[in-house]
Every structure is written in structure tokens, then in C-alpha cells.
Simulated scan of single mutants.
Amino acid sequence: MRTRSALVYSVLRLLAFFVPFGIFMLIPIMREYYWLSAIFAALIGLSLSMIFLRRPLDEVTTGLAERRARSKDERSDEEVEDGALPGPEAGSTTDAAQDRPQA
């Protein structure tokens, strides 16, 4: 993933929110209800980013997928979890039953 594409996408998403929010703050009634301005700006920003920012989003997600594929640690989640156990006998209940004296 190129840092530039992630930075461009993040800045454009922030602008898609803050520009409408700033415009709403110029309206006197919306200054009183700033939370309503924030909701409207979020909806407008989401809509704008879905329409106009599809290509930067694709670049960022493609870069993340490539980076994950190139990672040095190729082990699966199950292998990592199994490696976290202290030993093979840690989860075994049959060993504990064999250690008990029988009456």
C-alpha cells in the first residue's frame, strides 16, 4: 500500500465531511443545533465519498491486500493460536485423570 494513496483518501474523506459542516455552520439556525449539522454533514460526506471516492478506496484496499499477501508470517490463524498454547499436554484432561490414584 502506498502511503500517498491512503493519505489522499483520508484527506478527501475528511473534506467531504468538514466542507458541508462548515457551510451548515454559516446558517444561524444550524449553529444552535450543531449536532443536526454534524448528522447532515456526515450523511452528505458519506454520499459524496461513495460516489466520487471509489477509485482512491480501491487503491487503498488493493494495497492493503497486496501487503497482507506479501507478509512474512504466512501462518494461518489456527496455527498462531495453537502456537500460543504452552504445550501439548496443557489442554488434555486424560493426563490429569491418569495422575489421580484409583481407589
Score class of each variant (00 low, 15 high):
11 V>L: 14
82 D>Y: 13
6 A>P: 02
33 Y>I: 10
69 A>T: 11
17 F>N: 02
25 M>D: 11
24 F>P: 00
54 R>T: 08
38 A>W: 07
70 R>V: 06
17 F>C: 01
49 S>C: 03
84 A>I: 00
4 R>S: 13
67 R>N: 10
97 A>D: 15
102 Q>L: 12
60 V>G: 03
6 A>S: 14
39 I>D: 02
75 R>A: 13
47 S>H: 01
101 P>M: 10
7 L>V: 00
68 R>M: 10
26 L>P: 00
94 T>V: 14
86 P>N: 04
51 I>H: 02
59 E>C: 03
38 A>M: 14
45 G>Y: 06
58 D>S: 08
6 A>C: 08
17 F>H: 03
47 S>D: 02
55 R>D: 13
17 F>Q: 02
88 P>E: 05
34 Y>V: 15
43 L>G: 15
33 Y>E: 11
78 E>S: 09
98 Q>M: 12
1 M>N: 02
85 L>P: 00
43 L>M: 14
3 T>N: 10
68 R>F: 12
93 T>D: 09
1 M>H: 05
84 A>M: 15
93 T>C: 01
76 S>A: 09
8 V>P: 01
17 F>L: 09
62 T>C: 05
91 G>M: 07
28 P>V: 09
15 L>I: 02
103 A>I: 11
15 L>T: 00
29 I>S: 06
46 L>M: 10
92 S>I: 02
31 R>H: 07
102 Q>T: 00
22 G>Q: 00
82 D>A: 10
96 A>D: 06
19 V>C: 01
54 R>H: 05
16 A>R: 01
9 Y>Q: 08
91 G>V: 05
65 A>I: 07
47 S>G: 12
78 E>W: 13
51 I>V: 07
2 R>T: 05
51 I>Q: 02
27 I>E: 05
28 P>W: 02
71 S>T: 14
26 L>Q: 14
65 A>F: 10
102 Q>V: 01
31 R>N: 09
14 L>T: 12
77 D>R: 12
24 F>D: 01
74 E>Q: 13
95 D>R: 15
67 R>I: 02
87 G>C: 10
29 I>T: 08
9 Y>N: 13
21 F>N: 03
58 D>G: 09
51 I>D: 00
64 L>V: 12
69 A>S: 11
70 R>E: 07
75 R>L: 10
20 P>N: 05
99 D>N: 14
51 I>F: 03
44 I>H: 03
54 R>P: 01
13 R>A: 12
23 I>Q: 03
